[in-house]
């Protein structure tokens, strides 16, 4: 093994006039790939309330509340503050009602703002839905 003093200098000087590899992040953003696991979102018209997602979620981030048994009205709450973005719910869902979007900058100052609520009725025709959060 032979030692070469200043072995790194050519490489350093070569990069002096090249574009930096880093970007000015908050002002410039990199694109995420197509299958990125971002924030889980519910397409409530597809949900059949089988509760597979509730059962499999490792962070207990999904809750389904029964608002009224006769009207088949349900409320799903996705706690994004607990969500670990593993997309197990997407995989467990038999009707593909859940999917992950490409949003990753979801930090806020309160965990209450991270709650996503979906109110919907189960039958074929889609009921009213509201989303907060």
């Amino acid at each position: 093994m032979k030692l070469k003093p200043a072995a790194f200098i050519p490489e350093l000087l070569r990069h002096l006039f090249k574009r930096p590899a880093t970007i000015e992040y908050p002002f410039e953003k990199l694109k995420v790939p197509d299958d990125f696991r971002g924030t889980p979102v519910l397409k409530s018209e597809l949900c059949i309330v089988c509760r597979a997602c509730v059962r499999d979620c490792p962070a207990f981030a999904i809750e389904i509340e029964t608002l009224s048994e006769e009207e088949k009205k349900y409320k799903m709450t996705i706690h994004n503050d607990r969500c670990i973005h593993c997309a197990q719910c997407v995989e467990s869902c038999p009707t593909k009602a859940l999917f992950m979007n490409d949003e990753f900058e979801i930090a806020t100052d309160s965990r209450l703002k991270l709650k996503a609520e979906y109110t919907y009725t189960r039958p074929k025709k889609s009921g009213q839905q509201s989303q907060t959060g």
Partner: peptide, 11 residues
């Protein structure tokens, strides 16, 4: 990230 959808926890 391209393969698994995340950079750290590939899952």
């Amino acid at each position: 990230e391209i393969i698994s959808g995340n950079r750290v926890h590939y899952a």
